[in-house]
Amino acid sequence: MSEPILEASNLSKNFNGFHAVNNVSLRIEQGTIHALIGANGAGKTTCFNLLSKFLAPSSGRIRLKGRDITRFRPDRVARLGLVRSFQLSAVFASLTALENVGLALQRRRGESFDFWRSTRKLDDNRARAEELLDAVGLADDHHTLAAELPYGRKRALELATTLGKDPEVMLLDEPTAGMATEDVGHITRLIREVARGRTVVMVEHNLGVVSELCDRITVLARGEILVEGDYDTVARDERVIESYIGGGGHA
């Protein structure tokens, strides 16, 4: 097997003695869409925060493109090409859609500390920002404030912003949470499109979305890996069925 693009080995996280994530090892292959599923409290989000470095692991190692990132700060990991999204739509509310995406494009030009320059410097990014917004179906909302966008479109804007970083690995935290059915279909199609040529790790509750999108699925229960495999393997596994029905309760 080739070198995985993102690899976690024996990852653990304690919160004052509570093992939120316990000895989890993951191999995320380049170009795949990988799902983390599990009942509430199974440790998916903690796992996610560990992978994106928003939390420091209690023990274990994380490697991105063969490089040990266990001690890196989250902003550095982002600059290395691993960009995450958030469970609740994370947009810059009082900025327009265009400005939101612009913030993802800005950094690359390496002049973001220049307080003596005009924002006109950033106009070069504008065409690219418009392109990204159009691609996620926000063609009519370039100048709408993010706060004024309906929820589904906020998620689309968030995705466009993430894409602005042109990430090699995208970590999507429940991209369809709290969405109406037709929006779920829209976002699912979008993710499939933008995942081309990238690697995606997603936490997702909606098993329909998981079955449609994901190549590989890891099921977590009480902080540990229960099963890993493709959708059919996982869906047939009795422990998974029990864990889902039992809500991750006492075994």
């Binding site: 960009v83 958030f86 810059f92």
Partner: peptide, 18 residues
């Protein structure tokens, strides 16, 4: 512009590499 991003949503600003 980055300052505004930090004001609006700090974790997101971090996740964009700032």
């Amino acid at each position: 512009a980055v300052l505004r991003a930090i004001r609006e949503h700090e974790p997101r600003a971090i996740s964009l590499g700032y």
